[in-house]
Design a protein around this nucleic acid. Structure first.
Lengths: 337, 337
DNA sequence: CTGAAAGCGCTTACAG
DNA sequence: CTGAAAGCGCTTACAG
């Protein structure tokens, strides 16, 4: 039904080798020939069959995006949507397509095998959240080029990440600038690297400030609104004056708990979040938070992955982007806006 | 590097035709032979090369998911994440993979061509929101099996949808049961089918109730929190006692505006939303809303699409699922919870 | 700069 | 029930 290379070759009176060359931008084609072939291609709206190309050339132009999704409603965190959007934009630009796998735990093992064995993709982006994800180890042992979004505690893998420690430190420092008598944090799950790192950043800022970490309060949340709410409730008894929540979603929940307790933000309790999701600027008061350059991350990820695909065996790269503190009204040290 | 059909054939001392048959579940294989081959496959963890299979058989086992994303931050609406999750689960079950295309307008035309021409997928799911999406027309003119999530004003296409009119009607009826003197609605964009349909449902409920539609207030929102907020502000002057917001995100924004105006929910203004996203149960008061069976939609979509792929030329099917009213405290006619 | 030919790893009539 | 052979639509040395 659709045209093949062969058809285009006949229509332009050249061999299919030549057509293939012009399609792939090979320099060894006379300018006039190239123009003629290109014209035929355009006129007939020809699209090469990707399966055939892959089989012959050993590569497709698609990359796999793996997101561990089974765990609760984490996938509905706007973070994933935003990152995916960034990645997708970058792929369009580079003429790659994205194969999406939302890994629910039950299918995980089977899925790894399918991904690796079926040679459907040239490379993989894993958005791994767990500290010691078997997916990452499996990928690491395979020959498949891949990039981990985040970090891994022990393995040397190519990764793109935002500096979570720095992000948490920025937010915590800002909270400390109002000299609260007691500061607390609602952490992310400690079996996730982001959860751990953001707690580390919090701890560093506290220590830098000349305080003892022991005098500090920490409750573990699960990155959901409800988790933030519950955590804040249990924190309330200790009467903190400042709280760093490791995600905006949790900050939102915490604000709800604070409001229900009849306390004012920031007068009674100052609060800061992390991620700068759309809602952050709409809460009341607007939420001080940390912005991650998600669009840039997507582009860097794809560029690095393509580099890896074309030139394997390079030294492992770890790219860490700087987060940015966004000051709003919830910490009290800025004009309410 | 990885094994091929040929390797498996040699290892099990049969021809590759036979191996292919056992892999594809062809009945014409002696039971003993099948077992032996299967054993070799398992032991070597063999995965067929999908590109080769596609080239030979004319089909891959992947379906494309197209989501128009460029328009604002719509993609970060939890609705998309939830639907995608449902679709992904269904695909895992059926051993299909998902190719994801987030269509930003600039790339749209080019993308349609790539999708249709490259024969990368067996079928397509389009999550089209616009009333008259060129993507849908293009798909409709092609031979590619596809399912539209939503509805189309004029084209006869295979579609899976939730009854948006009914959903809006349920919510509006519930609001009317408290006999407000004046009822208003914050609609979705009227260039989207859901926006139009939910307004229709609102209008039907109002008319049913013996009221005149003209006595009613309607402001168009854009499905974001901010849009709901702005719309509610402009509605406030007219002092409605009840508001139906066409999405929970907009309802959240509207609640913020109401609160800022110093009014109480539901005492002064009752409010209902649509979608039952995670936040709906966490707002204060909890939001009455309409739940869509997204998981079921995903499964039905995949099943129907697979049916379409295997048996083309069937009469066009339109599957419409029933939404469910979730009564919470924001309408005042239930115990606060 | 260009073409003829082999080959990528499968599936599928066709014969037996 | 099984195998030999052709073919899917490309790419890529190899020769010229």
């Amino acid at each position: 039904m659709s045209l093949t290379l062969e058809d285009i070759a006949q229509l332009s009176s050249v061999s299919r080798s030549t057509v293939s060359r012009v399609i792939n931008g090979d320099a060894n084609v006379r300018e006039e020939t190239r123009r003629r072939v290109l014209e035929v291609i355009q006129r007939n709206n020809y699209q090469p069959n990707l399966a055939a190309r892959q089989l012959a050339a050993g590569h497709t132009k698609v990359i796999g995006l793996v997101i561990p999704a089974g765990v609760g409603t984490i996938f509905s965190d706007p973070y994933f949507a935003q990152f995916t959007q960034g990645l997708s934009d970058a792929c369009s630009e580079k003429e790659y397509s994205i194969m999406l796998w939302l890994a629910s735990p039950e299918y995980e093992r089977r899925m790894i095998r399918r991904i690796l064995g079926s040679s459907l993709v040239d490379g993989i982006v894993v958005l791994s959240t767990l500290v010691d994800d078997p997916l990452v180890s499996a990928l690491h042992e395979s020959q498949m080029p891949f990039i981990l979004i985040g970090s891994h505690p022990s393995l040397e893998v190519n990764s793109v990440d935002v500096d979570n420690i720095e992000g948490a430190r920025l937010a915590t420092r800002h909270l400390l600038s109002t000299s609260p008598s007691k500061i607390a944090t609602i952490t992310g799950p400690q079996n996730m690297m982001v959860g751990r790192e953001r707690y580390q950043g919090f701890a560093q800022a506290v220590t830098e400030n000349g305080r003892k970490l022991e005098d500090t309060l920490a409750v573990e949340g699960d990155f959901t609104e409800m988790g933030g709410y519950t955590a804040m409730k249990s924190l309330l008894a200790a009467q903190p004056q400042a709280v760093f929540a490791a995600s905006d979603l949790m900050a939102t929940g915490a604000m709800r708990a604070i409001r229900e307790a009849g306390l004012r933000i920031p007068a009674d309790i100052a609060i800061a979040g992390h991620d700068d999701m759309p809602i952050a600027s709409q809460t009341n008061p607007a939420l001080t938070t940390v912005r991650q350059p998600l669009g840039q991350m997507g582009l860097l990820t794809i560029e690095t992955l393509i580099e890896l695909i074309h030139h394997p065996g390079q030294p492992t790269r770890r790219i860490v982007l700087k987060p940015e503190l966004i000051i709003r009204a919830s910490c009290g040290s800025s004009p309410a806006n």
